[in-house]
Structures are given as C-alpha cells and as structure tokens.
C-alpha cells in the first residue's frame, strides 16, 4: 500500500498535478471575500474562521473528481479492482494520498490567510486545528461522490453538488469549535470531538461506499 501512497503523492506534485491548484484556489477565494464585505477589520476577524472553513471546503472539493477519473482514463482502475488487496483499503490509501497532497497544504496555508482576516492567535490556532481534523473527512466522503461520478462524462461539477450537502456537518462542527475557542463561555472540546468523530465515521463509510460504487460502475 505504501507504493500506491507514494505514487499518488508523486503524481499530484508532478507537473500538471493538482496539489498547487487547490491552495491557490483557497487563497483566491479567501482574498476575494473582503472585496465583497469591505475591509472592516473587526468584521473580517469576526467572520474570518467561517470564511477560511468555506474556502477550504470548496478547495478540498476541487480536485476530488480526478481521484478515480484519472485512474479510469488510463486503465489503471481495472488493475486496482482486480487485486487481492481489499478495494476498501486501496480507496482509503488513495484518499490519504489525496489529502496529503491537497488537504494538508490547505491546513498549512490557513494561518497565513488568518492573518489576512485579522484573526487573533487563538482563532488562527483553533481554525488550523479544526481544519486539520476536518479536511480528511471531506476527502473521505468526497471519495464516495467521486466514485459514483467516475463513469460520467464531465463529472467534475457533479461531484461538488453530490458531496457538498454531505459535508455540511463537518462545516458546522468545525466552525462552531472555532467560535467556542474564541468566545469564552462555550467549551471548545465537545464540538471538536464531534468533528473528530465525524472524521472517523467518514473514514469508514466513505471508502466502503466508494469501493462499492467502483465495483458496480465497472464496465
């Protein structure tokens, strides 16, 4: 499984890979928000965590459609399906590679964008931490959508439409954990632990659903 992980990471950082695009999209989306709401620093620092989360959510969805589509186009998907290794495990590893290449850079870029949003240290730390815990969940559940849309021509947009509603809980608990960290009376841990639980739950249900969809859509 390590070779598959390394291959996928290598593919996404190679020329033409999607690793850079996701972060760039994240930066652009977040940078455009102030042009819409105005450069009021107090307002920006209040909505900053939510903006970062929405931006990261959209950026994480961006490259997902290529997760299995690229494998299908060059015939690799057939060979991955035939192997003795459980398909669920293959999908899980592909998700991990995808997250390392596209999700982790978002987490790393988040503190920088937090500065743009005039967020204080606690808010930046909390946002980064929740993104670290939450973005894998988006990838896992997104893999199911990507597997369902793999056989469709131009599945890219469809993946986003399929996955966004499923990712709403991640967004809710991610942002509310950050707000709990900033505003004293509310405790940080309960929403954060729910977020982690969602992550673990999706880590199971996403690959299982994706593997089933891939088997069924093979033709």
């Amino acid at each position: 499984m390590i070779p598959l992980l390394l291959r996928d990471i290598r593919l996404s950082v190679r020329a033409g890979g999607g690793a850079l695009i996701g972060v760039l999209f994240f930066m652009t989306v977040v940078a455009v928000i102030p042009f819409g709401v105005g450069p009021d620093l107090n307002l920006l620092s209040r909505i900053g965590p939510a903006i970062l989360w929405i931006g990261a959510l959209l950026a994480a969805l961006l490259g997902l459609d290529r997760l299995f589509q690229a494998e299908r186009e060059d015939g690799s998907l057939d060979l991955l399906l035939m192997q003795e290794t459980p398909l669920v495990l293959t999908v899980l590893v592909k998700c991990l590679a995808h997250w390392i290449a596209t999700g982790l850079p978002l987490v790393i870029a988040a503190p920088l964008l937090g500065l743009f949003m005039n967020m204080d240290e606690v808010a930046i730390g909390a946002t980064t931490l929740t993104l670290l815990a939450g973005t894998p969940a988006i990838t896992f559940i997104g893999a199911a959508g990507a597997a369902i849309a793999v056989a469709l021509p131009r599945g890219g947009l469809l993946v986003s439409i399929l996955v966004l509603p499923l990712a709403i809980p991640v967004l809710i608990f991610g942002v509310s954990a950050v707000h709990a960290a900033i505003e004293d009376p509310a405790p940080f841990l309960p929403p954060f632990l729910i977020l982690v639980a969602i992550n673990l739950f999706f880590a199971v249900i996403g690959p299982v659903a994706a593997a089933a969809a891939l088997r069924l859509s093979s033709d």
Partner: peptide, 11 residues
C-alpha cells in the same frame, strides 16, 4: 498594530 490591513496599495 496588525499584520495586514486591506489598504488599497497592499491589496
């Protein structure tokens, strides 16, 4: 007193 302001020039 802050790292970033949305000043026209910086922006």
């Amino acid at each position: 007193g802050t790292w970033w302001v949305w000043d026209a020039r910086l922006t």
